[in-house]
Amino acid sequence: MREEDSGSIRFIPSSLSDGEEGDKHGNGGKTDMYPFIGAFSMTGGDGENSYASNSILQRKVIEKARPVRVKSTKEMLIGLDFPPCVKVADLGCSSGQNTFLVMSEIVNTINALCQERGRDPPEVDCCLNDLPDNDFNTTFKFAHFFCKTGKGLCFVSGVPGSFYSRLFPSKSLHFVNSSYSLHWLSEVPRGLKGNKGSVFMTGSSPRTVYEAYLNQFRKDFSLFLRSRSEEMICDGRMVLTLIGRNARDPLYRDCCHFWTLLSKSLLDLVHGGIVREEEVDSFNVPFYDPDEGEVTEIIRNEGSFKIGELETHEFDLGQSRDEGDYMLGRDKSGEREANCIRAVSEPMLVAHFGQDIIDTLFTKYAHHVSQHSDCLRKSTVTLVLSLIRK
């Protein structure tokens, strides 16, 4: 892009779903039972413990989903006969450079196909969405470089708001991407009081805990699809990646599952007299890792989208490490994985337990990672879906 063609940057507030009052997560203000939900966001800034500095795993997930995203982008452009303006949304963009990896890939794919077919490149409207407390400032530090790397005009905007609500005008979106965001729920499910000593679910959790999490995911994902169906044009494309699980006992999570290790680390602090047991029992993460069957059932029942592709890739939190960490031993690798989980959970943990326990908690976490570094039985996968608006 020529210097005089550099794209513009704007910031657009978003309304909540259906005009109803609610909190910033679009859950109708239901944060009284779990007030730490109001603090949900990735750790901002670019410091040692920030999301921007600890999102290597997410970057690798973006790269792994690239073939599906490139194919979907080309199909969208050809199917819509090369529209003069293409509106792209990245939902749950978080902060840092990863967001522009996706946008650069989409823009480059569009430009390359236009050149191949002898078409003028379209203007591209790149909309970055996350919750209002997201650190958009760190993300927008990279926007100028992004706008200068492509051909044609690119416009970048921030759209704060929950993607479990309407965010854009009707029939305005051509392409939607969401990477590693949809496993986060709008709220902690009700009915988890029997889930003692765990921040998520384990094999010892009552089956009602699984049912509560599944029902919340079904409600949230259906709302996400319904909201996007109103915003996307016919034959628009959507590519979603999220953490899922292998189809087996729905309560099973392996010994080195990241939330299992966080639960163990918190219980260490209970045994050390640093945290009260009832504090741990009242903390549950707003997270769910569906299997393929649950995802496809919800998509088909909602009815607005056709499934183009559905891939599963093995998930390993060890991918959060730098390649050189393997040469530095288990302790260094454990620190990397602990930092990855800290970056996505620290604001909620601080809101519930206070800042003073955080360093000790993740020192414990890193130790548990090092003890389970040879764990081969993984219960988690990454799901990659491409969807077509009917």
Rank of each mutant, 00 (worst) to 15 (best):
E337H: 09
S104F: 03
R237I: 04
F168V: 00
H271D: 09
I62S: 12
S370T: 07
S15K: 14
Q355M: 05
R69V: 14
I78Q: 00
F100Y: 14
L349I: 15
V344M: 14
E278T: 02
L262C: 15
S14K: 14
S205D: 03
I307Y: 12
N246R: 12
H174C: 05
T241K: 01
S333R: 03
D133A: 10
E294A: 15
D18T: 13
P250V: 07
Y288D: 07
M33V: 00
Y213F: 11
S320H: 12
E116W: 10
F163Y: 12
F142G: 11
N177I: 05
G161D: 11
R69A: 13
I110L: 10
I233T: 00
E123K: 02
L167V: 02
M232Q: 04
G194L: 08
H25D: 06
D281M: 07
G96I: 06
L251W: 03
L131D: 11
G118M: 08
K141W: 01
A89R: 01
K378V: 06
I56A: 02
R69I: 07
D322S: 11
L185C: 01
L173Q: 13
E294R: 11
I388P: 04
D268Y: 00
R218F: 01
C114E: 03
E302N: 09
E311M: 01
S222T: 08
N215L: 06
R207Q: 05
N54P: 13
F145V: 03
S379R: 09
N111M: 04
I298E: 13
Q97I: 05
H174P: 08
C126G: 09
D32E: 14
Y326A: 14
D325M: 12
D23N: 10
I307A: 10
V381S: 15
Y34Q: 10
P286R: 04
L317V: 12
S104D: 01
N284P: 04
G79D: 05
R66S: 11
D356E: 13
S179C: 10
M103Q: 10
L376F: 14
E231A: 04
Q97H: 11
S94C: 15
G152P: 07
K74H: 15
I358W: 03
T382K: 07
K306L: 09
K64T: 00
K193F: 11
C147K: 02
A366Q: 08
D291A: 03
F221I: 06
D46F: 06
F168P: 06
E211S: 11
C127M: 15
I307L: 12
L214F: 15
R226Y: 08
I12Q: 14
M33E: 14
F217D: 14
E292S: 08
P83R: 01
H367Y: 13
N246C: 02
L385W: 09
V61I: 12
D331K: 13
P35T: 05
L128E: 01
N177Q: 11
D249I: 01
M33K: 07
G47M: 07
N54L: 04
G273F: 12
T208Y: 04
N27D: 11
E75L: 13
F40D: 13
G244P: 15
S181D: 03
N195V: 11
I299W: 09
F155T: 02
H352E: 01
V285G: 08
S157R: 10
D220Q: 09
S165C: 10
P83S: 09
V384A: 14
V275E: 09
T149E: 15
I56W: 02
G334R: 06
D316M: 07
S172N: 02
